[in-house]
Design a protein around this nucleic acid. Structure first.
Lengths: 156, 156
DNA sequence: TATTGTTATACTCTATAACTATA
DNA sequence: TATAGTTATAGAGTATAACAATA
């Protein structure tokens, strides 16, 4: 199970390196829109789930729940997101994306696609799909290992 | 060039997620050996380059040079690494891995391989090689974009 | 004048503990 | 009693600026 010695080391290092490259380029691209990567991820989640609580989003992003407060504050201040109390459980908020939020999300997606095209330029379309497939399987195992259910209809 | 909409977003997110998973598991595995991931990466570089300066390593790891000071201090204190002045340029140190350092490196590699086997369990050997190949091409483009030459004989 | 390594300091990011309001 | 959200505070990690030695 061990191929050339050091494959895992190299693979892991390149993984981290490529990941931080992606994140940095995305951060650069989103900055002019007044968004950080996390804001974008929150919007992306809310773009597919109608309504989510802060805890749900914190869990999925592996973020401390206290960090969600300022994060949602930011988005609410920009009117990209709304806080309404969940009638079923008045302790939680039912966070919802606004129409303006969807517009920002669309722009941010364009940025993200451009960054992806730049970083993954050496790979053709078939390879990118294959990469996404492999990563999907790896991360499915991760989520299963956490025994955590999906959010909404699917894992964003 | 844009496949299913949002592919880049998902790909990027899973990339970051998988990368931090790898890093966390590696950190857990190395902790009992008194090493952090960065110590390991430094040892891995020195395991293939005979001698490197602090600046060279900082550049390759995309780390602030000031952070290398304490990092090398740690490794030197454990006698895993030696600082000797570079005779060719007495401003720099020629950092060299020790015999004890090679032993630690070997153990750390075992840990890293185990972590890799765990995280990439859903992928068979051919897929892992393919993943490594694709990542290698992507990161080669990254380094070329930086116009930075290789360190020693190869990019670790 | 520029570069390597060093130190001290300031800054950013994150987690912890304590609180409220609901359940 | 436990959970969602909030606040203030402490801690870790990182970068910045100024310095000494060498080029």
């Amino acid at each position: 199970m061990s191929d050339p010695p050091g494959l895992s080391v190299l693979l892991g290092f390149q993984f981290a390196k490529c990941g931080s490259w992606l994140e940095q380029r995305l951060a650069d691209g989103l900055a002019p829109h007044g968004l950080k990567v996390r804001h974008f991820l929150v919007l992306a989640m809310l773009g597919e789930a109608a309504t989510l609580s802060q805890q749900q989003m914190a869990t999925y992003l592996s973020l401390d729940p206290t960090l969600m407060v300022a994060l949602i504050d930011d988005l609410e201040r920009q009117r990209l997101v709304e806080r309404t109390r969940d009638p079923a459980d008045r302790r939680r908020y039912a966070i919802r994306i606004t129409a303006k939020g969807r517009q920002s999300l669309a722009k941010a997606r364009t940025v993200a696609d451009a960054v992806g095209d730049e970083v993954f330029a050496p790979l053709d379309r078939a390879e990118r799909r294959q990469l996404a497939d492999m990563l999907g399987r790896v991360m499915a195992a991760y989520w299963d290992g956490r025994q955590s259910g999906s959010i909404g209809t699917a894992r964003p």
